[in-house]
Design a protein around this nucleic acid. Structure first.
Lengths: 242, 242
DNA sequence: TACGGTTCAGAGGTAGGACCTCTTAACCAG
DNA sequence: CTGGTTAAGAGGTCCTACCTCTGAACCGTA
């Protein structure tokens, strides 16, 4: 049987032809040049029209390639100025977390539960990794929150900002990225479901104050406990509202 | 002084104008439609020319938007066929960024620290939310891990699978999504940086056993402590190796 | 009946040109 | 020194034309 003969011959020896989009090839070249250090951070790329000529592709293809690199954070296009190479910071590398979380379309309750599982650890880590500079940032955030509660400024966001500041204080890019992604989700939900919002009040201020104290004392265990308590209070408020 | 006058006026009341690229706006619309479930996995999008008409932008802008969605894995364009919606898993969402992530060591190192902040809370939540069904899943995962350590099966992945099973046991979609995304990153790093790998051994088995015990006992506090201890051990191993 | 070739329409991929808008810098006028 | 004008460079958008791939319908021949 010819069929058997075919099976007996293990190596077809037919190489894939392959090609793919031109923009992909352009992207690959750029990535390689950046790995090799030929393209350093801050370098200005040639104009799109010129790149098109050098790569021998149309400007459209060049633009699609640049858009990809832009999305990856490897490049930044500024209208009227040019396109510049950029080595993305650790936080930006974690950007896809945002999409991952958003796509899971979590319910409001699951986000609150997530916070209770996550943020105590974040607070503890912040206490462990605190530096003088981060301490100042935290202090400033707390101050803004208190002012907001007392009527000046946006109350809705200053609470989130404080929690975000705590995450920042960990100095850990993964923590910061995840935290930011989740809070963005929370922000969206609050616009849609008023039931997910709560009015910060004096008790919240006390909670934040206690948290900051624990962090400044470099006491991870206490910071974790205080954060857990604070979130429990908030969750209780939400249920009470509903 | 006019400068003082400016400062005294707290509300500029000038809204940012903003606009940005057209393709961004198109991308946003698609993402929203996908979140809302209007665009289900496998759906065929209208042709580019038609989309251009409907969005009232040029085909170029539509294409740039589709390229972005393509890169994110949210859409797949097949030459000659059409463009199709895809709901990718965490693995695919992180994929494009893996080539970039090796550029940043700090980002890689931060993942382990993230786990120590996050997973104890996950374990505690799993203990609190345990059901009979999830308990069985956890048991099975532990069994596979033990078999792998004793020489049968893939050691590298069974450890991750067990931790993933713990996250699943929380029943919280947000927790599960974040956990999956982070482990995706971890998996990738282990292939590239040998320093991020460790050999699971008997001590790990003991750690996992103790963790499962605590969860089955529905003891959140103990589960959190055990997970923290387990991760500390692993981290210690890693340092010892280096 | 089965296989292979042809044709055709639909859709993505590429090209190149035209025009708009933004940014910067140089220049000019008050 | 300030503010307006101008011009050049560069990204953003649009349009039109053409190429190539895919799939389906329609053949023909063995």
């Amino acid at each position: 049987m010819t069929a058997k003969d075919e099976l007996a011959r293990p190596a077809p020896a037919f190489r894939q032809v392959a090609s793919g989009r031109l923009s992909r090839q352009v992207v690959s070249q750029f990535q390689q040049l950046m790995r090799e250090g030929v393209l350093g951070s801050g370098d200005k790329l040639p104009a799109e029209r010129e790149l098109a000529e050098q790569f021998n592709v149309s400007r459209n293809s060049v633009r699609e390639a640049l858009r990809e690199l832009d999305l990856l954070g490897l490049v930044e296009s500024r209208h009227g100025e040019g396109t510049f190479v950029r080595h993305p910071g650790p936080a930006e590398l974690m950007a896809p977390f945002r999409t991952v979380i958003e796509l899971s379309m979590p319910a409001a309750e699951s986000v609150m539960e997530f916070r209770m599982a996550f943020e105590p650890g974040v607070a503890a880590l912040a206490a462990a990794n605190l530096t003088a500079e981060r301490e100042q940032t935290l202090l400033a955030a707390l101050e803004r929150f208190e002012q907001a509660v007392h009527g000046e400024g946006a109350v809705e966001t200053s609470d989130a900002d404080f929690h975000l500041a705590v995450a920042q204080a960990t100095g850990n890019p993964t923590v910061i990225a995840v935290h930011a992604a989740v809070y963005e989700l929370l922000h969206d939900m609050r616009k849609k479901l008023p039931s997910a919002s709560y009015d910060p009040h004096d008790k919240s201020v006390a909670g934040h104050r206690a948290l900051l104290d624990a962090i400044r004392a470099r006491d991870p265990a206490r910071a974790g406990r205080v954060m857990h308590q604070h979130l429990s209070d908030v969750a209780g408020e939400l249920e009470h509202q509903a």
